[in-house]
């Protein structure tokens, strides 16, 4: 990337940061509208910047742009919407858009797993908790952001740093995509399992060249320690949850003596 592009990228990040700061709940209505306009122009700037890199490739770039715009819009709404239920629902939208982006990158398993885990389980629990917590209406604390300036600064500076280090716009990031494939092929050859690029052989093996098999193979070869640690953490969390909610109830709780049959309901005053 040329230094001009990088400078423009940073300026767009700054614009996005200002937009989010203005749009966070708690401000004036006019400020939030200004935030919306700034945010939209930042997204449009990214689109213009990316257009040259993307539209040379193929038609799927159009889908990428649409889904990415939906994801960014949803993510902005998650942190700027004043009602928590809507925030959670926009989070669902973000998850769906990102899952479709993954499916487009031929990572079907990751995409569907994201939907099942996040949209299907975690966010339903969020909505559940929000519904339970807000029976008496939204509290005043929900209406404004806490430490908006610091949050926006940390968030956008981190994002700019990550993106500048990744150093590639989506169109020419082949170096990043190739690396895991090469590792997979090396491992596969070592273990005698047909690699992905040989469809003729892959058909013989159950789940041979499929995406799920690749993920499983990588998880249980290269990343097996991480997998085991994650499993252990989940188990500990499970035990901790049970220990937290468990209440020891003595077996012989004194039961209030039941009144004789004819007396039941006598103490209740009539209407």
């Amino acid at each position: 990337m040329s230094s001009v592009t990088v400078a423009m990228l940073y300026m767009l990040f700054a614009l996005g940061g200002v937009a989010v700061y203005l749009a966070l709940p708690g401000g004036q209505r006019s400020a939030r509208i200004a935030g919306l306009i700034f945010g939209l122009s930042a997204i449009a700037g990214f689109a213009v910047l990316a257009a040259g890199h993307l539209f040379g490739e193929d038609v799927s770039a159009v889908y990428f742009c649409i889904l990415a715009a939906v994801a960014i819009f949803g993510a902005g709404k998650v942190i700027t919407h004043p009602k928590p239920v809507y925030s959670a629902l926009y989070f669902v939208l973000v998850v769906l858009a990102v899952a479709f982006l993954m499916v487009m990158q031929e990572a079907e398993f990751l995409g569907i797993a994201l939907i099942i885990v996040y949209a299907g389980a975690i966010l339903v629990t969020y909505v559940f908790v929000i519904m339970l917590a807000q029976q008496s209406g939204a509290s005043a604390v929900d209406g404004r952001a806490r430490e908006p300036l610091l949050a926006v600064l940390v968030g956008f500076v981190t994002m700019a740093a990550v993106v500048s280090q990744a150093g590639h716009l989506p169109g020419n990031s082949t170096a990043m995509v190739d690396a895991p494939d090469a590792a997979l092929a090396r491992l596969a050859v070592a273990d005698g399992i047909p690699a992905v690029d040989e469809p003729g052989e892959a058909d013989d093996e159950p789940l041979g060249g499929s995406n799920t098999a690749q993920v499983g193979f990588l998880l249980f070869s290269q990343y097996v320690v991480a997998l085991e640690i994650a499993g252990l953490l989940l188990l500990l969390a499970l035990i901790g949850a049970v220990a937290l909610v468990m209440k020891r109830v003595p077996r012989d709780v004194p039961v209030a003596p039941a009144p004789p049959l004819g007396e039941i309901g006598k103490e209740v005053p009539p209407f």
Binding site: L89, E108, F109, I116, A119, V124, V127, N211
Partner: peptide, 25 residues
Amino acid sequence: NPDIGLLYVLGVGSLGVYGVVLGGY
């Protein structure tokens, strides 16, 4: 006929609860 047909059914099915929850809320 995607690779992950079965997971697709599970994933879509797990979204079904939103309709009921949203209606109720």
